[in-house]
Computed example of a mutant assay.
Amino acid sequence: MSALPDATFSDRQNEVLQTALRLLVEGGEKALTTAALARTANCSKESIYKWFGDRDGLLASIVTYQASRVRVIDAAALPKTREQFAEALELFARDLLDVLLSESSLALNRLCVGTVRGDEPGVGAVLLDRGKRRIEDRARRLLEAGRSGGHIAFDDAGAAYRALYGLIIGDLHIRAMLGDGDAVSAISITDQARAAVAQFLTLYAPAGAGGSSQT
């Protein structure tokens, strides 16, 4: 199965973004400066500005890069059987768990949350726009294709996605954000993804397919 990319960065740009994430994990927000990134990634500050723009642009690119790691099967080439559709959902679920529970994503989320002031989202707006919403939009297209193929049934794609997301993540992300490493280490990502998808397919099974269709 082929997966849809969500970014058009070059290999070199990806390397620089990986370095930026490493700096963020190891030293926090203060460690992520243009000078430190240029030195550590062995590139010029001019190249960083050219590729990513200012600091907000760099953060937006980091979020986009992270979101691209959550693969979604191309809906146009969606497998025809329910079993193959389940495999596509499991791929999404495993990637989502891998990315959201990674040290780099947790550090990035903590940075974004720390910029929120009242009704002002700060850098959090970038995380919502370039991360969460892009992942959701792509996953919803997969769910729509699954409905078209008769594998699932729903009226509201947004509600179906939120149900899938909730079954996959539960409270794991917030617990990891708060430093509960035991919650993450205690799970098998493969088992968690498989169980979440099985529950979702039962919950949204078409009428007459043995599940409780959500319509």
Rank of each mutant, 00 (worst) to 15 (best):
S104F: 03
T115S: 14
A77G: 05
Y161V: 08
S68P: 05
L23D: 00
T19R: 10
A38I: 07
A160W: 06
E144G: 10
I73Y: 10
S68C: 00
S10L: 05
T81R: 04
A163R: 01
V25S: 08
R55T: 11
P206M: 08
G114W: 03
T40Q: 10
A107W: 08
E15G: 13
G124A: 02
V70R: 02
V16H: 04
T115F: 03
H173I: 00
R147K: 15
S102R: 04
S2F: 11
E29Q: 08
Q214A: 08
V70F: 00
T33V: 09
D98T: 15
L101Y: 03
A198C: 04
L21K: 04
L167W: 08
A193F: 10
I189H: 10
V116T: 02
A193G: 03
E103M: 13
G27H: 11
Y165D: 13
L164G: 02
L23T: 01
V25L: 07
V16S: 01
V72I: 15
G166K: 02
N14E: 15
Q84A: 15
D98A: 15
A125T: 08
T40E: 07
A145G: 14
L32R: 07
G210T: 12
L178P: 01
G158F: 10
D98P: 03
A86K: 07
L91I: 12
I152C: 09
Q13I: 05
D129E: 14
D155Y: 10
K30Q: 13
Y204E: 04
L59P: 10
